[in-house]
Nucleic acid binder design. Structure first.
Lengths: 140, 140
DNA sequence: TTAATACCTAAACCTTACTTTAGGTCAAGG
DNA sequence: CCTTGACCTAAAGTAAGGTTTAGGTATTAA
């Protein structure tokens, strides 16, 4: 059961990442499993795609490229780095939860502003008592 | 009832932002209300602090400095820009909700990895059936 | 056989958001 | 008076994360 493989162009389309970005990741050690044809062309396997998915996940939580590379190096080193990887994910979990909490706080203020400007739009001005008095954390 | 005012150093401490960053924001038009002493020293009022708070909020949701400046320009232009400001906050709301959703998706994978590595740590290896078979979206 | 595509590399370039540096002002305390 | 600390500016520098460019290779369709 030999798996299906993909070209960099197919991967770029599938993941909606520029080709140049994928090359950049590869160059920076984020895709150590990639094979090449005799003509030096990259061949992506399912495993590379899973890895790309994990990279996207970690990037999304604000992890830097160099730290993602460190993690991937640990993976290729095998069982001796399980502890570090565990700690890394615990830390990532904590950070991600904090980010979600911070975004939810920001969203509250934004929701308030949406209401504020909806009323202002209705009135044609922000100079009405309803808005002046509703004076929450912010003005403007 | 003249309000209390603050020096840049006090603001930096209160908001835990470097002084250089506050100056950078000011230079880039994010703090158009700031007054100065005769000796050219910045004086921060409550209103400047509220504005800083709003800047932090927008920045937190991924808005760029130049777009925050545009918003602040709209604010100083008065009622003629209510519509734009309303649209901006609706857009910000949408984006922020998407970011939260994306982070929650990432968090699911991270939670899975925490469990995965907790078990691996316990077993001393990732080479156990329990982990091989739990084969969720990702490996590594 | 040639021309279009899709791929390759190295290196230069770019943007964003700051930070650092160099040189100067100003008010208060000793 | 003079020094210390907090402030000021303009301009150069930095880090991260790509993107673009220039020049070249390999496969395929006409």
């Amino acid at each position: 059961m030999n798996q299906k493989t993909f070209s960099i162009g197919e991967i770029a389309e599938k993941y909606r990442i520029p080709i140049s970005t994928i090359r950049y990741y590869d160059k920076n050690g984020l895709l150590p499993l990639i094979k090449r044809t005799s003509g030096n062309v990259r061949i992506f396997s399912d495993e590379d795609m899973r890895l790309l998915n994990m990279i996207e996940c970690l990037k999304n939580t604000g992890m830097q490229i160099k730290d993602i590379r460190t993690f991937i190096e640990w993976c290729t080193e095998g069982d001796s780095t399980i502890e570090q990887r565990y700690e890394m994910f615990l830390e990532r979990k904590k950070e991600t939860e904090q980010q979600i909490a911070a975004l939810q706080r920001s969203l509250e203020l934004i929701d308030f502003k949406c209401e504020y400007y909806r009323k202002a739009k209705e009135a044609g001005t922000t100079e009405i008592p309803e808005l002046q008095n509703a004076c929450p954390p912010e003005i403007l």
